[in-house]
Simulated scan of single mutants.
Amino acid sequence: MNSMSSRPILTAPAHPASDAGEDPAPGDILDLTCTSPDRSTLRVALSGEADHFSSHPLRVLLAAAAGYGYRTLVLDCRRLRFCDTALLTALESWQRSGGQVHVDHPTPHLRLLLDVETRRYREPSGRRLVSVGRSATGPEES
C-alpha cells in the first residue's frame, strides 16, 4: 500500500476574510444538496458560485446520475450567487445524455445566460431546451 502526504496548496487565507462577503477559499465555493423524489428525477440545490474552477463536483454528480438512469434534473438556484458558462456546459452534458433540465429560482444573471444559450441552440420545434420557472423575477416559462 502506498501513501503520500503533501502540504495543502492553500493553508490559510492570504488575508483574513472580512464581513463584506468575500469569497471563501477555493473548494468551499459551490455546495450541492441532492434529493430524489422518484427514480428518474434528481433535484440539486446549488449554493455559492458555479464557475470553471468549482463546477467539477457538479459535472461528476450529473454523469453518475445519468449512469444510474436519472432523466430529469431539477436545479434549484435560489442560493446561487454567481455562475458562468461552466454551469451551462454541465447542463448541456446532461441534455446530451438524454436528460431534461428544469431550473427553479434562476438568478437574473443565470436567466440571461440561459436566454442567450437558448437563442443559440433552439430545437427545430422552437421549444426551449431548458425550462425555467419559479422565479422571483418573472413568470414561469417552458
Rank of each mutant, 00 (worst) to 15 (best):
L32F: 13
L32G: 14
T33H: 11
T33N: 06
T35P: 14
T35L: 09
T35C: 10
S36M: 10
S36R: 08
P37W: 01
D38R: 01
D38C: 11
D38I: 10
D38L: 09
R39Q: 04
S40W: 04
T41E: 10
T41C: 11
L42T: 11
L42E: 10
L42F: 02
L42K: 01
R43G: 06
V44A: 13
L46Q: 06
S47C: 14
S47T: 12
G48H: 04
G48L: 04
G48E: 02
A50S: 15
H52C: 05
H52N: 05
H52P: 00
F53Y: 14
F53V: 11
S54K: 07
S55D: 08
S55W: 05
S55V: 14
S55Y: 05
H56C: 03
P57V: 02
P57M: 04
P57R: 04
L58Y: 09
L58N: 04
R59Q: 13
R59C: 13
V60A: 13
L61F: 00
A63L: 11
A63E: 15
A64T: 11
A64N: 12
A64C: 07
A65S: 10
A65C: 05
A65V: 08
A65K: 10
A66F: 08
A66M: 14
Y68C: 10
Y68H: 07
G69V: 03
G69H: 04
G69E: 09
Y70S: 12
Y70Q: 14
R71N: 06
R71Y: 06
R71G: 11
R71W: 07
R71L: 11
T72S: 03
T72W: 02
L73E: 12
L73Q: 08
V74T: 10
V74C: 14
L75Q: 01
D76A: 14
R78F: 00
R78D: 15
R79W: 13
R79D: 15
R79A: 07
R79C: 05
R79F: 10
L80A: 06
R81A: 15
T85V: 13
T85D: 11
T85I: 10
A86F: 00
A86K: 08
L87P: 09
L87Y: 02
L88P: 01
L88H: 05
T89W: 07
L91Y: 01
E92I: 12
S93C: 05
W94C: 01
W94H: 11
Q95W: 01
S97T: 07
G98S: 04
G98N: 02
G99Y: 06
V101A: 01
V101T: 06
V101I: 02
V103D: 15
V103T: 10
V103R: 12
D104V: 07
D104S: 06
H105R: 04
H105Y: 07
H105I: 00
H105A: 12
T107M: 09
T107F: 13
P108I: 02
P108R: 09
H109G: 05
H109I: 07
R111E: 04
L112C: 08
L112Q: 09
L112T: 08
L112G: 09
L112F: 03
L113K: 05
D115Y: 11
V116D: 02
V116F: 03
E117W: 15
E117H: 10
T118Q: 14
T118F: 01
R119A: 00
R120I: 10
R120P: 00
R120Q: 06
E123D: 12
P124H: 02
P124A: 02
S125D: 13
G126Q: 09
R127Q: 15
R127L: 15
R127A: 15
R127I: 15
R128I: 04
L129A: 09
V130F: 09
